[in-house]
């Protein structure tokens, strides 16, 4: 009979040590909304689970100067009530809030969503669009990793043994900025993105786009930062031509698979559709944030 050990350390250092020193497979636990399901279906059989929710750095939201720092295990329910974050990055918060039901929202977190390693994770394209950077702690010290570099393949992360994401750092957006995230699911709830698109953009006083980022999910083995999408918008007034170029760039960036949730052709087309629709929402927000 295999046994399962559970630890709930109160410091990052203890958590890192427990994970790094474990024999066999050790898994960090944030909200557990993925991990517990995987445990129950025998998808994973770890020997050690390290709960991170007693570590203050993972449960805080702080604003320091030009940076907003969100603890990796902060729940969707908590983040949704944080005015600083919801007004700065409504698209990121909305993306996190799309995950699961009301009950799940009490547990689901940005860190858990990212570190589950799914290419379809809802909050990840929005975090990529927002330019979020992960603060990572590990046995060899701390480092910063842009969100788009964390997932290296389905279920695969760039994190080494004992490394955990402690928090996400996002810049405070300048005036006339907006972001948005849209996903396509066949139903209205309780589903996994067939395509997800996050867009963040900033306008100058003339309404010309000076900064833009496009993140896509569920269209490649990893969530994508689409540089060509930003190029399609920057320097334009985000008019129909620019949006069509954005959609084309989004579709061109896709490298999806045919699977039970959608075909290649479908994902490629809908990625463009969603990128354009998300950009329109971001644009509207940017214009009202003048």
């Amino acid at each position: 009979m295999s046994s399962l050990r559970f630890e709930a350390p109160e410091t990052v250092e203890d958590a890192v040590r427990l994970l790094a020193d474990a024999d066999g497979e050790a898994m960090p636990l944030a909200g557990g909304t993925d991990l517990l399901v995987q445990l129950r279906t025998d998808f994973v059989r770890p020997g050690l689970i390290v709960d991170l929710k007693r570590i203050p750095a993972l449960m805080d939201v702080t604003v320091n100067g030009d940076d907003i720092r969100v603890g990796a295990a902060v729940s969707g329910a908590t983040l949704g009530k944080n005015k600083a974050v919801t007004s700065a990055w409504p698209g990121v918060v909305e993306a996190l809030e799309l995950i699961g039901s009301t009950q799940i929202q009490g547990r689901a977190s940005l860190g858990g969503n990212l570190c589950n390693g799914s290419p379809a994770a809802d909050s990840v394209p929005a975090l990529i669009a927002a330019g979020a950077v992960c603060e990572v702690a590990g046995p060899n010290g701390a480092r910063s990793v842009p969100v788009e570099d964390v997932i290296t393949g389905p279920g695969q992360l760039c994190l080494g043994p004992g490394e955990i994401v402690v928090s996400f750092v996002m810049p405070k957006p300048p005036p006339r900025s907006g972001d948005a995230y849209l996903r396509f699911i066949p139903r209205t709830e309780m589903d996994i993105a067939v395509v997800g698109a996050g867009v963040a953009l900033t306008l100058d006083e003339a309404g010309v786009c000076t900064h833009a980022r496009l993140g896509l999910g569920a269209v490649a083995p990893t969530p994508l930062l689409v540089e060509d999408g930003a190029k399609a918008l920057i320097g334009t007034k985000v008019d129909d031509d620019a949006l069509a170029n954005l959609a084309a760039a989004a579709s061109a960036a896709c490298n999806p698979i045919d699977d039970k949730r959608g075909t290649i052709a479908y994902r490629v087309k809908v990625a463009g559709v969603l990128a354009r629709r998300a950009a329109l929402i971001a644009l509207e927000r940017a214009r009202s944030n003048g």
Partner: peptide, 16 residues
């Protein structure tokens, strides 16, 4: 069978 669960066997939910 690739979708033996309610996640990918998509019955309507109330909001649908």
């Amino acid at each position: 069978l690739e979708n033996p669960g309610f996640l990918d066997y998509r019955m309507p939910v109330a909001s649908d």
